[in-house]
């Protein structure tokens, strides 16, 4: 029996009838056509599908679309505002924190959760925070630098405002 869900994704409200078994990641990709959120595994391990549900990083391959009913969702497509890149997006570009780009959206969304709780992370904090996100290209070195860059950027913003 299909179930109605209402979700707000990147500030836009949607309402759809869905099969209860539909995974949230497939809802975002196939129904809403927000394909920046990726599927890299089937064991909740790789983190390529990381989004924010009610402000918290979540692996949406391990969540049913029906569970997201009534939730606020942010995907990578919703991270930049008015064309301005989020400091993390900027950091990944400046520090060459990506190569093939497949893990990148999930990596950025997880790092964003970290910075909410820990705005000035150490290298070790970042490495620990990203343990649930696999990257096969970069060896993580430049990803760590990218997150440090973003933290620095956010600190500057905080001082300015």
């Amino acid at each position: 029996m299909n179930t109605r869900i209402q979700v707000t994704v990147n500030g836009v409200q949607y309402s759809h009838m869905v099969e209860p078994r539909l995974l949230l990641v497939h809802y975002l990709r196939d129904v809403l056509r927000l394909t920046g959120t990726h599927v890299g595994c089937d064991t909740s391990s790789c983190g390529a599908c990381t989004i924010h549900v009610n402000g918290k990083a979540t692996k949406c391959c391990t969540m049913l679309a029906v569970q997201a009913n009534g939730c606020q969702i942010t995907t990578i497509e919703g991270l930049s505002h008015n064309g301005d890149l989020h400091p993390l997006q900027e950091g990944f570009k400046e520090c060459h924190g990506l190569q093939c780009g497949f893990c990148t959206p999930g990596m950025i969304m997880t790092a964003a959760d970290l910075l909410q709780h820990n705005p000035q992370p150490t290298e070790n904090d970042i490495r620990h925070a990203l343990e649930g996100n696999f990257c096969r290209c970069t060896g993580y070195h430049n990803i760590v630098k990218s997150v440090l860059y973003a933290a620095e950027k956010l600190k500057e913003h905080a001082v300015v405002h």
């Binding site: 909740s44 983190g47 990381t50 549900v53 918290k56 990083a57 979540t58 692996k59 391990t62 969540m63 997880t110 959760d113 970290l114 925070a129 343990e131 649930g132 996100n133």
Partner: peptide, 9 residues
């Protein structure tokens, strides 16, 4: 336990 994402849910 797990990772940030798993701990959140």
């Amino acid at each position: 336990i797990g990772d940030i994402q798993v701990r959140n849910y």
